[in-house]
């Protein structure tokens, strides 16, 4: 790939860096300056990526304000160019980026809120999956419960934070009542992201619940996962958690671990 490839890479460099085209790229426009045309492409490039970030991170944008978000997104675009023709995939590194962004360090919870927003964004577009066959599950003999392997829905994700990010997120939803009091008490929180009837939903998990679900998601059996949660908290309510996760569509499928 010779001349075409050279032209496209030169054009790419010009759009990304804001510098001019090389002499070999014979771009012309008869009715206005070439810079006018190049600026339209540069602005489209940055504008489309900014809009994608704004769409994926509405809570971050509200927390820091539109102007600062624009400043943040400009630096993000410089650091993380797009790698997919599907704009919904743009912005995955925002949490990490904010954590390293000097002027945002005063808001220590921002990276975790960003992680939660990205989890919600991915949950929205995640693949569909069937519902758990509760009747089939009821037919499993009790003696085999410990060997059950449970699978979670593709939209399901967990975010751990030292901050009450679920409260922060809820307070910035369009239907929030505006009564926003968040206590930064240093108690770790676990937030479950899932999707019910196509709507993304977040809910808080207790420490043992989060432990249980993390084991389940790693492929561990029901018995092993439950042991881990009970070791953490003897009062762990497996029955209640199962009902909630089945109702929320988090658990979608089960198999029996083959016993040797």
């Amino acid at each position: 790939m010779s001349r075409l490839h050279d032209t496209l890479s030169d054009f790419t460099y010009c759009i990304i860096t804001g510098l001019g085209l090389s002499d070999e790229t014979t771009a012309v426009c008869p009715n206005y300056r070439i810079e006018t045309a190049l600026d339209i492409y540069r602005n489209n490039y940055r504008g489309n990526l900014h809009d994608a970030l704004s769409h994926a991170y509405p809570v971050i944008e509200q927390l820091v304000g539109k102007d600062y978000f624009r400043y943040l997104s400009r630096h993000y675009v410089d650091r993380h160019p797009s790698v997919s023709g599907n704009l919904h995939q743009y912005g995955a590194e925002m949490a990490e980026f904010i954590a390293g962004f000097e002027s945002a360090k005063g808001l220590a919870y921002l990276p975790d809120v960003a992680e939660l927003e990205w989890a919600c964004h991915c949950a929205y577009f995640a693949e569909d999956a069937g519902k758990l066959d509760v009747m089939a599950l009821a037919k499993i003999p009790q003696a085999q419960y410990a060997d059950l392997i449970l699978n979670t829905h593709p939209s399901c994700q967990m975010v751990r934070s030292d901050y009450p990010i679920a409260s922060i997120w809820n307070a910035h939803q369009p239907d929030a009542d505006g009564d926003f009091h968040v206590t930064l008490d240093g108690i770790p929180s676990h937030t479950l992201v899932s999707r019910k009837d196509h709507a993304v939903k977040i809910s808080a998990l207790s420490e043992p619940e989060a432990t249980w679900l993390a084991w389940i998601r790693s492929g561990a059996s029901l018995g092993k996962s439950t042991d881990a949660a009970v070791n953490q908290c003897a009062a762990f309510d497996l029955h209640g958690l199962l009902l909630k996760l089945i109702d929320d569509g988090v658990l979608i499928h089960f198999t029996l671990r083959s016993t040797p």
Binding site: R3, L4, L8, S9, T26, N48, G85, L87
Partner: peptide
């Protein structure tokens, strides 16, 4: 149009020269 070169995707609809080389491609 084109939208990617090297490691970069430009999420836009970009023009290119109409050459025999581009046509075959």
């Amino acid at each position: 149009c084109w939208n990617a070169s090297g490691g970069y995707v430009i999420n836009d609809l970009l023009p290119f020269p109409y050459t025999e080389e581009a046509l075959a491609h």
